[in-house]
Simulated scan of single mutants.
Amino acid sequence: MAENKDTKSYKRIMQLVENSMAIEAEAAKEAGAVGYMARALVQATMPHSKPTETSFVRENGAFSMAIMAHPKVGLPYGSVPRLLVAYLTTEAVRTKSREIELGDSLSAFMAELGEVPTGGRRGSITRVKEQTRRLFASNIACTYTADDMDAGVNLAVADSYELWWNPKNPEQGTVFSSFVKLGERFFEEVTQNPVPVDLRALQALKKSPMALDTYCWLTYRMSYLSKPTVIPWAALQMQFGAEFGRIQDFKKGFLKHLKAVLLM
Rank of each mutant, 00 (worst) to 15 (best):
M1C: 15
D6P: 09
D6H: 14
T7N: 09
T7I: 13
S9W: 14
Y10E: 15
E18Y: 15
N19R: 15
M21R: 13
E26P: 11
A27N: 11
A28I: 07
E30I: 10
A31Y: 06
A33D: 05
G35I: 02
A38R: 03
L41V: 08
Q43N: 14
P47M: 02
P51K: 02
T52M: 14
T54A: 08
F56V: 02
R58G: 04
A62I: 08
F63E: 03
F63P: 07
M68C: 14
H70C: 12
P71E: 12
G74L: 00
G74P: 10
Y77W: 05
S79K: 13
P81K: 09
R82I: 02
Y87R: 03
T90R: 00
E91K: 10
A92M: 07
K96A: 13
G103D: 12
A108I: 07
F109D: 04
L113D: 05
V116Y: 03
P117M: 06
G119V: 01
G120Q: 01
G123Y: 04
S124N: 06
T126N: 12
K129I: 15
K129M: 15
R134Q: 06
A137W: 04
C142G: 03
A146T: 14
L155P: 00
L155I: 01
S160Q: 08
Y161L: 06
Y161V: 02
W164L: 08
P167I: 09
P170R: 05
Q172R: 10
G173Q: 13
S178F: 01
K181C: 02
L182E: 00
F187G: 01
E188S: 12
E189F: 06
E189Y: 02
P194N: 05
P196F: 05
Q203E: 08
L205Y: 06
K206T: 00
K207V: 07
L218H: 04
T219H: 10
T219P: 01
R221Y: 10
R221E: 14
R221F: 12
M222G: 06
Y224G: 08
K227I: 11
K227P: 10
P228Y: 07
P228Q: 06
P228N: 09
P232S: 03
Q237V: 03
Q237C: 02
K251W: 07
K251Y: 07
G253E: 15
K256G: 14
H257D: 11
L258S: 04
K259G: 04
K259R: 14
L262R: 12
L263A: 15
L263E: 13
